[in-house]
Each structure stands twice: as C-alpha cells, then as structure tokens.
Design a protein around this nucleic acid. Structure first.
Lengths: 191, 191
DNA sequence: GGTCACATGTAATAGGTTACATGATTGG
DNA sequence: CCAATCATGTAACCTATTACATGTGACC
C-alpha cells in the first residue's frame, strides 16, 4: 500500500478516519459523534459512512479486532500506525476552500422584488433554523471522557469549536434583527 | 408545461433563474455576478451554468431574443411570465437546510493531538482564507444601476447581504485570535 | 497577426443523498 | 413476544466539479 493510495481519499473518508483516531469507535458511534459536533461544518451521510469505513479498512488505515466473516454485529474500529500517518499528512496538506449552500440567503437576494411580507417570512424561516441549531448543535453538551486530553492550552478543542458555532449562530440571529429593522423602516414610512 | 416540471429544478437552476429575473443577462454575466455576490453562500460552477440555462429555456422559464441556430455569440436571456411565477413559488417554499463544507475546521478538530505548531498552521491558513475573502468578496464594490430598485427599506438587499458576509468574516477572524490566545496559554505555561 | 479577455459548451467523473433493506439487542 | 433502538449495509439517483474544447471580438 503506497502513499499514493491515501492521496485520493475523499475529505469525508478522512473525517471518518479522524474520528477513529480520537478513540476506537463503531460506525454508529461515528454517526452520532458527527451529528453532535461537526454536523454544521461537515455533514456525513449514512450512505457514505459504511462504505468509506470498509475502504479505510481495505487500505489498512483502520482495523477491527474480530474479523469473523459471519458476524454482523457491532464492529469497533481502531486506527493503525499507517492510518495515523495518513491523518497527519492530511492535516498538514492545504485545505479545500470553504463551501456553503444556504438556500435561504439566496432566496433573500431575489425576494426584494416581492412584497416585504415575503422577505419577512424568509427572515423568520432563517431565525427559526438558527434557533433550532443553537439548541441542538451549538450547545456544548456533556463532556466526554475521551475529550479530556484534547487540550489546546486552557481550553479543549471541542469547546473552541462549539464557541465558533455559537458565535456564528449569534451573528446570524443578529443579522435577522437587522433585516427586520430595515423592513420596519418601510412600515414607518407608510404610517 | 406543467407546474410539476418546475418542481424538480435544482436549487442551482433556481438561483440562475433568480439572476435572470433581476435583469436580462448572458451566461457569462451570471457567472461574474455569482462570483461577486453569492459565491460564498452559493457557488455556481461553469459546468452547471450553461446546461441549466438551456434547461430553463426548454421549460419556457427564460428566453433569448434572437434564436438564430447558427449564432454562437453572446446570447442575453430574460425571464418569462412563467419563469417569474416559478421563481415566486420557489421563494415561498421551504428552504433546504444550510450545508457547509469547511475542511479547515474539521482538521482543527483532529489536530489537537498533534503539536501546537500544527494547530497554529491551521489557524494561519484559516485567517489567510478569510482575509482573502474579506478583500475579494465581502466588500461591497461599485453599485450597479439595476441594484437601485432592490430596496429593503433604507438599505439595498446587496448591502444587507454584504453586511452578513462581513460579519461572518469578522467573526471567523476573531475566532482565530481566540484560538491563538489559547495556544499562547501553552507557551506561557512552559516559559 | 497575435494574444487576451469574452463567451459558450461538453464529457468524464467524483461525490453525496435518499430510500430502502435487514438483522441484533434490550427492556417492558 | 413486541416495540424501539442499535447497527450495518446497498442500490439508485442526482448533483456538482474538473478539465477540456472551441469560437469570437477587440486591441495593440
């Protein structure tokens, strides 16, 4: 297995590799962990997860202890030395540019030609989605045992990451207020 | 052509439709406009643009004046009544959830196990990408004639959108500072 | 006449999502 | 033993990206 073979792993495969690197996990564990932490800056869909795990195993980057061919129950993966090397190499290579898909914002861009009420609806939709997000994803949640060693100075990585999500969310909500204020400007003009 | 046929347009096709709705444009114009304005919350790639324009034309949502089959030069598209109806309908329907792909952040999540210098490199990469972004995308640029009527109360839509991008960028840069501060905490401990 | 920006297009492929299918385990 | 959750997998489909191919008009 050459270095070249690591090279064409997808970013999603590498993300999965990262999760296994933190501590041994099953596919299901990874799914749950991804939902809680990375979901807003990197979604991992079911259809990708298991095939990618298989691929990583084939490349010898992760392993599962019991290789019983018949067993279909939970298999816990752990990272191999080769896997750790590949992970490190990935982290050191240049990252793909940020990519976003925010349909609500796109609509906002074109909604100005419609009635103000329409824009208001969009702002409302946006606020709701970010409020949901604040509750379900951007909140720290209970600390995990394996997080203890992930210190970055005084704070853990997951703390900092959640902080980022929280700030982003607050920023988005504040912007909703701004737009509504601008719209209220119209209402006042007519009053 | 039934309403059902509009239904399975991709969000990208609808975005393109939105651009044509603002004022008549060529494919090239749309590409440029998309680069300037929506690029950070909705990328439109070349390979999508022209086929989607063709599709929109086939559905009768946009039209190009001269239909000369031989002509290969610039063709300017404008929206049809059906197109405007489809656009309005789209704007009123629920939006797809926000989706992001931020490889740099993902790496950050797993980099804590490596040396602090590695995290520093990632923060640096992040800062650079957002600084680039602040200069090239999030800045308002010269006002366009067609923007004049896109008022949302006292402010134009594009002003508000740029404001959002600017705030997001500033937030991201501030977060970089926070991470570096946390890292400096380590350095101080060792001093 | 050359070269650069304008302008349009296509083919190959990678990549991701949805929906479906199935089995194992645990608690009531 | 039934339901719910845990757990894994796959096939079909859709979308987007990359790289390439081609032509045009303008300016020097």
């Amino acid at each position: 297995m050459s270095v070249d073979e690591w090279a064409d792993l997808t970013p999603t495969a590498r993300t999965i590799l990262g999760f296994v690197a933190q501590h041994p996990r099953s596919g299901y564990d990874i799914r749950e962990a991804a939902r809680r932490s990375v979901s807003y800056f990197w979604g991992v869909s079911d259809g990708q997860l298991y095939p990618q795990l298989k691929l990583l195993a084939e490349l010898g980057l992760i392993e599962s202890p019991q290789e019983d061919p018949g067993a279909r129950s939970k298999s816990v993966w752990h990272i191999t030395p080769a896997g750790r090397a590949a992970l490190t190499k990935w982290i050191r290579s240049p990252s793909a540019p940020l990519r976003m898909r925010d349909e609500n914002l796109v609509k906002m861009m074109f909604a100005a030609e419609l009635e103000p009420a329409e824009v208001l609806r969009l702002v409302d939709e946006r606020r709701k989605s970010f409020e949901w997000f604040a509750k379900n994803v951007a909140s720290p949640g209970p600390a995990q045992s394996w997080q203890a060693d992930q210190k970055l100075g005084s704070r853990t990585t997951s703390e900092l990451l959640h902080e980022y999500g929280k700030q982003h969310t607050e920023n988005a909500l504040a912007w909703c207020d701004q737009v509504e204020e601008a719209l209220r400007g119209i209402a006042n003009d007519r009053a």
